[in-house]
Simulated scan of single mutants.
Amino acid sequence: MNALAYEDIKTAADRITGDVRPVTLTRVDPGAIGGDRRAALDGSPGQPPEVWLALEFMQHTGSFKARGAANFIQAHRDAGTLPEAGVTIASGGNAGMACAWAAQRHGVRATVFLPANAPRVKVAKLRSYGADVRLVGSEYAEALAVCEEFAATTGALTSHAYDHPLIAAGAGTLLEEIRAWIPELDTVVVAVGGGGLFSGVAAAAQHHGIRTVAVEPEHCRALNAALEAGSQVDVTVESIAADSLGARRTSAMALHAAQQDRTHSVLVPDAEIVRARQLLWDHRRIAVEHGAATALAALTSRDRRTPEPSARDRPATGRGYRPADGEKVCVVLCGANTDPSDLVR
């Protein structure tokens, strides 16, 4: 399945209503987040953009992943296709937590495979949801290979961290809620790992005529590289945000979504991700993981650029994203499963 339909997102919204927490949004004070006048979010001489933060890290399990997991488990529950062996998933941490949480709610066994270097805070939280946690290798791809062997041997139902229509459709429900807060939204900015959040959000945004900015670390760029190649490719993963954005290969759904009009793929360096995360702490006392800060880094990066008017409504790639005068922008802060001890207090 390469294209996610808007109807899939509407169905997911109906299915998970009452199971997930509605997103909370907060508006950024003009100039409040940024290093200096040139780097501030209101750095243009005209009417400043209107920037909002979607606090999706307040979701169950600490990330947007709960939406897709709830949709996946409930859909299989409704269809009577949940096996006795339960569900299994490979994850960098957040998707595994969401799967375990959703499975626990339905009394279903969950076996989760993580890279051995997954953050301890995520491993501990997984176990608190009753999951059987298995640490394998040093990258998500290695955990995925062993997870697939486990499913073939036991008959467990395989979920996926991002590359499944039910997972992506659940994630896309977030955009519907954001629009309820900001009916005249122009642009939504999301961090991208494998592309589940981006696929869902972009499909909903495309339906409503909203621009989507997909943000990746410059050395963790599965979607950006696929756009350049015109097909899915494997990439090297090396970023401070790799624990949540460290997919070697983007999904076909994400690539398809990124090739549509009103989408932008941008890259940010690790130093700007660290800086954006610190800015959130300094100005709002918000402690998010580096993957979530990656989205904000597109707007606060000192190398950000304003797309040419002719490029704003067609697929484009670049460094950072500078909103136009008066543009209404929402940045999704997608997860907060992090150790905040390295934030300057």
Rank of each mutant, 00 (worst) to 15 (best):
R120W: 02
A171W: 14
C99T: 08
G130N: 06
A171H: 07
A141T: 09
G107Y: 00
K125D: 05
T154C: 13
C147G: 10
V133G: 07
H160M: 09
G170I: 13
P165K: 11
L157V: 13
S138Y: 00
W101T: 00
L114G: 12
R120A: 08
A110P: 03
V123N: 07
R127N: 14
A156Y: 15
N117K: 08
A169P: 14
Y129M: 08
V146G: 00
A124W: 05
V112S: 03
E139P: 03
G137R: 03
S159L: 15
A143C: 07
D132H: 13
A118N: 10
L166R: 12
L126Y: 01
I167A: 13
E149M: 05
W101I: 03
R109N: 10
E139R: 15
A161I: 06
P119N: 00
K122G: 00
R109K: 14
Y129V: 08
V146S: 02
R109D: 06
A141M: 05
L157N: 13
C147H: 08
R134F: 02
R105Q: 13
A152I: 00
L126T: 02
A103H: 14
V121M: 02
E149I: 03
T153I: 04
T153F: 02
G130D: 06
T111F: 04
C147L: 03
A110H: 04
A124Y: 05
N117S: 15
F113N: 04
A152V: 01
L144F: 14
R134C: 00
S138L: 02
V108S: 11
S128L: 10
L157I: 15
Y140H: 15
N117C: 13
A131K: 09
D163C: 13
K122W: 06
L135W: 06
G107R: 00
R127I: 14
A145I: 09
A100K: 07
A168V: 04
D132T: 11
R120G: 04
A116W: 11
K122F: 05
P119G: 01
G155Y: 05
C147R: 04
T154V: 13
R105H: 12
Y129E: 14
R109Y: 02
A116S: 10
A168I: 09
V123T: 05
H106C: 06
L166C: 11
T153L: 03
G107A: 01
L126W: 01
S138I: 06
H160T: 13
R120E: 10
C147T: 08
P115Q: 01
D163N: 14
S128P: 06
F113Q: 05
G137E: 03
T111R: 15
G137H: 04
V136Q: 01
T154H: 11
Y140A: 05
V146N: 00
S128F: 05
A171M: 09
V112A: 07
S159D: 10
I167L: 12
R120N: 05
A161D: 12
Q104R: 11
L114K: 14
S138M: 02
V108C: 09
L144N: 08
L157K: 10
A171F: 12
